[in-house]
Every structure is written in C-alpha cells, then in structure tokens.
C-alpha cells in the first residue's frame, strides 16, 4: 500500500542506515567522532526503527488472526497454524454472504450516485452563482457534517413509519446519501472554487448551455474531487450498520455489515472461520477502493495545516 509518501526522504536518510553505522561500533573508542556519531545518530536510528517495528507488529496481530482464521478450516479464536483452504470462503458464500454483499453493493452504489450528482450541482451553484444567505447556508452545511447519525435516526424512523418508507432499500440508500452530502458539497465546492472561470466563460460564449458547461468543462477539471467524494461516500455507505439495521428490517435486504453482526450474535457456536472469510470478502472492495484513491486522498490530510493561513 502506498501510504507513506516517498517524497520526504532526506531528514532521516543519513540516520536510517543502521547496518552501516553499526559496523563502526567496535572502533568507536579509538575515533571520538565515530563514537559521537554512534551515540547521536546511529543509536537513535536503531531505537526508532525498532520502536516503529514493534508498534507495527502489535497492530498486525489482530489482522494476522483474521487472515489465518479465514484460510483454516478448523479456525478458532486462538492462534491457528497457517493452512491454505478455501472451505471457509465457500461456506460463507453459501450461508448468504454473497446476497448480503450484493445488497451492500446496491445501497452503496445508489447512495454514491445520488450524493455525488446532487453535491456536484449544489457545489457548483454555491461556488459560482449568487445565492441569498450563502454564507449562512455554508455554515449550516459544515455544522451538519458533525451531527451524529444517532440523533437523526429516531426522527427519520418515525417519519418513515408515517409515510411508509420503511423496509425499502432505495429509501435507506437515500438516507445514506444524505449523511454524505454535507461533506461532499463542501469538498466539491472547494474544488470548483479553484477552477478559473475563464474556461466556463469561453464555453458559454461558444453557446453551450449551463449544464453542458458543467458537464464538459468543469467536471473533467475537478475529476479528482468528484472521485474522492464518490469513493468516500461509497466507503461510508458500504460499512453502514445502524441505518440499515433500523430502517430496513426485511431479511432479504440485509447488507453485509448487518449480516456479519447477525452471524456474530446468533445463538449457539460462532463459526469463526467462515465469519473471518466473510469479513475478508466484505472488506476487499473497500480496501481496493482505498488503494485506488490513496493517491488523491493523501493531499486531503494536510487540511489541518491550512489553518496557518
């Protein structure tokens, strides 16, 4: 996975060659400079690399269990010997994982399309058009991004009961889309703000309608933003648990997240192997999407630095 950027190598470069420095150790006393180098550069580098490796190994343990258990037909919660068998995967697929994953695909796909289209239109208008009370509207949108879903759930459930929208995958995905829209609007508006207006003006002079301009001029220019927004919405809806659990009780609409929970909390023996396989199958799409988007996402994490103005 390309997480750590490869750009900023220089700071630790010299210190990060434990092998080279370690060789100089025995002669350290004869050469005071080498001894100091050992103390101030080489030793901290070894300790630093070691500390990071230890943290990494600790983080790896639960993941290692998941992978070992998924491929071992006699998986238990304990340490299992590495085996390679796909029995757990076939069993997981037979017990309904494939249907549940298709349901997740529906929920995540529909909500991603709705949220992305709606937010692109709104982000464009909020970036370019005159909108009365625009400042206030943007503040409200930012406030909404921080609102807990748990607060919305009971009133939405109540509203859905009264208008008969419960137990419908489509309306459930509408709620999932809505939970992503505030952030998506904010993200896309910021992207559109950076596109020079001259492009659109040129297209408008050539007689293109506004929608055409948006679709053929603006959207291609902000494609990374559209993709990031779509991928984040998809990941969010894919993992959604509470909203489908409450709004759609129809067993045939159960998405993957709720399916895993039902397996976990089912009475009797938990089948760790098939469940681990199910977990891996369910996680794969999100991991792949993350890998695809990490290139564009990496820039997003410096947002907090922007505050320095």
């Amino acid at each position: 996975m390309t997480v750590a950027p490869h750009r900023d190598e220089p700071p630790g470069e010299a210190a990060a060659r434990p092998g080279a420095g370690g060789g100089a150790a025995p002669r350290g006393t004869a050469f005071p400079a080498a001894a100091r180098r050992l103390r101030t550069k080489v030793l901290p580098a070894i300790i630093g690399n070691l500390a990071m490796t230890i943290i990494g190994v600790i983080f790896l343990l639960p993941l290692a269990w998941l992978i070992l258990a998924a491929f071992n037909p006699h998986a238990s919660p304990g340490v299992v010997t590495p085996r390679f068998s796909l029995a757990n995967f076939t069993q997981a697929l037979q017990s309904g994982a494939s249907g549940a994953i298709m349901n997740s695909l529906y929920l995540a796909g529909v909500s991603t399309v709705i949220a992305t289209v709606v937010s692109t239109l709104a982000g464009y208008v909020l970036s370019r058009h005159y909108v009365p009370l625009k400042g206030a509207a943007l503040v409200v949108i930012i406030f909404l991004t921080g609102l807990p879903v748990t607060l919305l759930l009971i009133p939405i459930y109540q509203i859905f009961v009264s208008i008969g929208w419960l137990d419908s995958p489509f309306y459930t995905s509408l709620v999932l889309a809505a939970t992503s829209v505030p952030f998506a609007i904010w993200l896309l508006k910021n992207f559109i703000d950076q596109v020079p207006r001259e492009f659109e003006e040129a297209a408008a002079i050539e007689g293109s309608g506004q929608f055409r301009v948006l679709l053929t001029v603006v959207v291609p220019l902000i494609m990374p933003g559209v993709l990031v927004s779509a991928i984040l919405t998809f990941i969010n809806s894919w993992g959604a648990f509470l909203i489908p659990l409450v709004l759609d009780a129809n067993p045939s609409d159960t998405p993957g997240a709720v399916g895993i929970y039902q397996f976990m909390s089912a009475n009797g023996q938990v089948q760790f192997g098939p469940l681990a396989a199910y977990g891996i199958l369910f996680s794969l799409p999100v991991i792949i999407l993350y890998l695809i988007s990490s290139r564009w996402l990496s820039g997003g994490f410096s947002f907090a630095g922007g505050i320095k103005g």
Partner: peptide, 19 residues
C-alpha cells in the same frame, strides 16, 4: 519500515467498522 508499518496501521483503519 515506514511504508510497511504505515500500511498495516492504515489497513486497520480502512476495514469496515463491523469487521
């Protein structure tokens, strides 16, 4: 070290919460 430990830590974050 940075790339592999970073990937492991990020993988834990990318997994769906239910997993």
């Amino acid at each position: 070290v940075r790339a592999s430990v970073g990937s492991i830590v990020v993988l834990a974050w990318v997994l769906p919460e239910i997993c």
